[in-house]
């Protein structure tokens, strides 16, 4: 009998890992596909923050692929994904996470890949009821239908709760050996992981990307408001992951490095922004995003001084670099109680 081929959406979490293994166990050739949207929690933060350095820096999707012994294709969808984030047809979840549109988009991309590479079907680790927005009984057919994958989309972990798909009807897959997981409980997944001998897997709590994070979404919403348009570039969304963000005036915001790793990362952006750093005392590198006036720069310098070792000093000397021209401002550090909480984004 011809060996069938399936492409598995691998997020790096446990569910897609299990789903892929269930199908592998049935003798199907499985390869993984993983999408990089720019918002993925993976990688970046580990690389940026020194305090995270001790944590494992592995990429979960690659790690999962290695555990499964499958090839993994990582696809950069940064550009195309913008439309999903900016105009989600099905709206957002609790924050700026367009989970349902995101799922539809990813399954559609996987289906394109499947066609181009002559694979037979697609599989995901979705479980009915697992996530309030994108993984409900009603959304399962929406994802299958709107992505164009239709009944070539198999969800091995909850297939028994859904109508049989083509791979099941054709006998490529034995439906009886699939699962009927549903609801938010993680117990069945954990039991199956144990049965397969998987250990040390990652279980992202909120979701697979920064858009499910309240603070991150606030910063993105602020960026859109300040620019007057819902657009972004990769550098914008990377910078939202780094530093303390303060918007003292509508026309500019400050990105203040919190530690050495962030300073190093922000240094790479110095040419593109006005930057500040205390010189009379040690203190953070600060990028100014926007178009500050001279008064704004003085205000920003006194805030920069506030986050330096000279916060108790009378004055702090701050270097300001704008359009490649460096000069120094001597300012009193702004007292903490004078910083309105709403300046913190």
């Amino acid at each position: 009998m011809q060996q069938r081929k399936a492409v598995a959406l691998i997020s790096g979490g446990l569910d897609s890992m299990l789903a892929a293994r269930v199908v592998q166990e049935q003798g199907v050739h499985v390869e993984g596909i993983n999408f990089f949207t720019g918002f993925c929690v993976e990688g970046h933060t580990h690389a940026i923050r020194k305090k995270d350095k001790a944590k494992s820096k592995r990429n979960s999707a690659l790690w999962v692929a290695e555990q499964l012994g499958i090839q993994l294709h990582i696809i950069d969808i940064i550009e195309e994904y913008k439309d999903v984030v900016i105009n989600p047809k099905h709206g957002y979840g609790a924050h700026l996470n367009p989970c349902l549109d995101c799922k539809i988009f990813m399954v559609a991309k996987a289906n394109e890949w499947r066609r181009d590479n002559a694979f037979d079907f697609i599989l995901t680790g979705e479980v009915i009821g697992q996530r309030p927005m994108s993984q409900r009984k009603e959304t399962m057919p929406v994802v299958a239908g709107e992505s164009g994958a239709d009944d070539l989309l198999l969800r091995p972990l909850c297939a028994k709760n859904l109508p049989p798909t083509l791979p099941e009807r054709e006998g490529w897959i034995d439906r009886d050996a699939l699962y009927d997981f549903s609801g938010r409980s993680r117990k069945p997944q954990m039991a199956l992981a144990t049965a397969f001998g998987f250990e040390d897997y990652s279980q992202p709590a909120g979701g697979c990307c920064f858009l499910t994070d309240e603070h991150y979404s606030d910063k993105l919403a602020d960026l859109w408001r300040a620019r007057g348009s819902r657009e972004y570039e990769l550098d914008d969304i990377m910078l939202l992951k780094v530093g303390r963000h303060l918007r003292p005036r509508p026309n500019f915001k400050m990105i203040i490095a919190r530690e050495e790793g962030e300073t190093k990362f922000l240094k790479g952006y110095r040419k593109a922004f006005t930057s500040m750093n205390p010189v009379s005392h040690s203190g953070p590198l600060v990028l100014i995003d926007g178009d500050p006036t001279e008064d704004d720069l003085k205000l920003a310098a006194s805030l920069t001084a506030r986050y330096s070792q000279g916060r108790e000093a009378e004055t702090v000397e701050v270097e300001v670099v704008r359009d490649g021209v460096s000069r120094r401002l001597v300012v009193p550090p702004m007292p903490a109680h004078k910083i309105p909480p709403e300046w913190h984004i």
Partner: peptide, 16 residues
């Protein structure tokens, strides 16, 4: 320049 590459690129090589 991302130290994460020291783990990711070899893993990618092994699986592919």
């Amino acid at each position: 320049t991302d130290p994460g590459a020291l783990s990711d690129i070899p893993t990618w090589c092994r699986i592919n």
